[in-house]
Amino acid sequence: MIIGLGSDLCNIERIQNSLDRFGARFETRVFTEVERAKAARRPHTRAGTYAKRFAAKEAFSKAVGTGFKTGVFMRDIGVVNGPSGAPTLHLTGGALVRLESLVPSGYKPLVHLTLTDDHPWAQAFVIIEAVPV
């Protein structure tokens, strides 16, 4: 059963402006170490790489119905790639607690994530599914 759905559209130029203005301070406040390493390997599309991940964080916060409050922070939501290369989310802290609170007894959460970008836009969709254990 689907227990959450969220989407977000992020302007890549807005992320580039934040990188230009705040640099590493912005990166470490918003993105996980894994996300920063991935962006560093993509110098020509760094802002786009970050924008997709920013959109994923926003989409997740909408899917769990909290936004960035009640203990859900951006750095608790990290985009990672599964063995197939497909993106998914690695959650910690308040984001993980909130996700687990939504799942009925006898079920486990499964997070689906899709990302895309076409300059100047990046987009993410998150679907949270509860599947029987």
Rank of each mutant, 00 (worst) to 15 (best):
E13C: 10
T28A: 15
E129P: 01
R36V: 08
A122N: 03
L19N: 08
G4E: 02
L5R: 10
L110Y: 09
R46M: 10
V133H: 09
A130I: 09
T92I: 14
T88G: 10
I2M: 13
I127N: 02
T92Y: 04
S18L: 07
P109D: 00
P120E: 05
S7F: 08
R53L: 07
F54I: 14
G94K: 04
T114D: 08
F125N: 02
Y107D: 05
F54L: 08
F68E: 01
Q123L: 10
R14H: 13
G82H: 02
V131T: 13
A55K: 05
C10Y: 01
V131E: 13
T32Q: 01
A55S: 10
Q16K: 08
R98E: 05
A47P: 03
F60M: 07
V111R: 00
C10V: 13
F125L: 11
R75Q: 13
E100A: 00
A56Y: 04
F125P: 00
F22N: 11
G71W: 12
E58D: 07
L113C: 03
D8R: 14
V80Y: 06
F26K: 02
R98M: 10
G78T: 09
K62Q: 15
Y107A: 04
I77K: 01
H112T: 05
A55L: 09
R14Y: 12
S105W: 04
F26A: 06
N81E: 12
A24T: 11
F60Q: 02
P87H: 08
S18P: 00
F125I: 07
V79R: 00
P87A: 10
A47Y: 01
I77Y: 03
D118T: 12
R75H: 15
D20W: 00
I77F: 04
K38V: 06
V133M: 13
A124D: 02
R21K: 11
A130K: 12
P120A: 06
A51Y: 06
G85P: 04
D8I: 08
K69F: 12
P120V: 07
L91F: 13
L91S: 02
S105C: 06
T70P: 01
M74L: 15
H90A: 15
R75M: 11
S18A: 14
P132Q: 10
E35M: 07
D118K: 07
V72G: 01
S7Y: 08
I128C: 02
L99V: 10
R25P: 03
A130N: 11
V131Y: 13
E13L: 14
E13R: 13
V64I: 14
T114S: 15
S84E: 03
L19C: 12
H119Q: 15
R29K: 15
F54N: 01
Y107C: 06
L102I: 12
V72F: 06
A95E: 05
A130S: 11
I12C: 06
G48N: 02
S61Y: 09
I12A: 05
F68H: 11
